[in-house]
């Protein structure tokens, strides 16, 4: 393995439900956009609570290895990849800082609400305490997206990749009419790099079904 080589680590198999949404997809998508070559490494789904704590102290995926460096947390991995390629983030300081801001906003202002809301919803509590909070956040992001095509620096960046990945969840998309957000999610998920990343992830897990 060459020292420069990127490896995206994910599970060897997951059940059908999460396929197409496991977060290694974010990293695959970023590498595809940037044209960065990468390999996919796996940890066993069986025994996952303890079998990769060395690499990921919270027993999650994905994590990324870049030569000797290992990075976990999809947000940190994306930022690391973005600093390797101008296609993911502009090089000027103002642009870079704006991308950083929106990357963290996707994770901490939107996903911080949407994931627990979704979890309660699929647990059967459709009208849960987070509904009002999520509605407020989605309305706020709708207002932003009504006025521009891209979140930061006037162009596609890793912040859009992450925000789109947060907003494309079917239950989130179906939660109220938000045409600008819907058009944004649609536009982003039509990018060839996304389609390839998603298809590759699904194929990766399907291949394990046949073993």
């Amino acid at each position: 393995m060459s020292i420069e080589e990127l490896t995206i680590w994910t599970f060897d198999w997951v059940p059908e439900g999460p396929r197409g949404f496991v977060r290694d997809l974010r990293l695959r998508w970023a590498c595809e956009e940037a044209g960065l070559p990468y390999k996919v490494g796996t940890v066993a789904f069986e025994g996952r609570a303890t079998n990769h704590l060395e690499q990921q102290p919270f027993a999650q995926v994905p994590f990324l290895s870049d030569g000797d460096l290992e990075v976990f947390e999809s947000g940190a991995c994306l930022l690391h990849l973005a600093r390797k390629s101008e296609r993911l983030m502009p090089r000027d300081q103002a642009g870079e800082t704006e991308v950083l801001q929106w990357t963290i906003a996707a994770l901490n202002s939107i996903e911080m609400v949407s994931v627990p809301w979704w979890f309660l919803k699929i647990s059967g509590d459709a009208d849960n305490a987070l509904t009002g909070w999520l509605k407020m956040r989605l309305d706020q992001i709708e207002a932003v997206l009504s006025e521009r095509d891209w979140l930061a620096a006037g162009r596609f960046t890793v912040a859009d990749l992450l925000m789109a990945d947060v907003l494309r969840v079917p239950d989130v998309r179906a939660f109220g009419e938000r045409p600008a957000s819907e058009a944004y999610a649609k536009r982003l998920t039509e990018r060839p790099a996304f389609k390839k990343a998603r298809a590759d992830q699904i194929a990766h897990f399907e291949a394990a079904d046949r073993v």
Partner: peptide
């Protein structure tokens, strides 16, 4: 490399530890 390991922990604080606390 140590900078990235540290930044990783910043994200872990915000995105893995904070969500259940919120």
């Amino acid at each position: 490399d140590d900078r990235w390991r540290t930044i990783t922990w910043m994200f872990a604080a915000l995105n893995t530890v904070e969500p259940p606390i919120v």
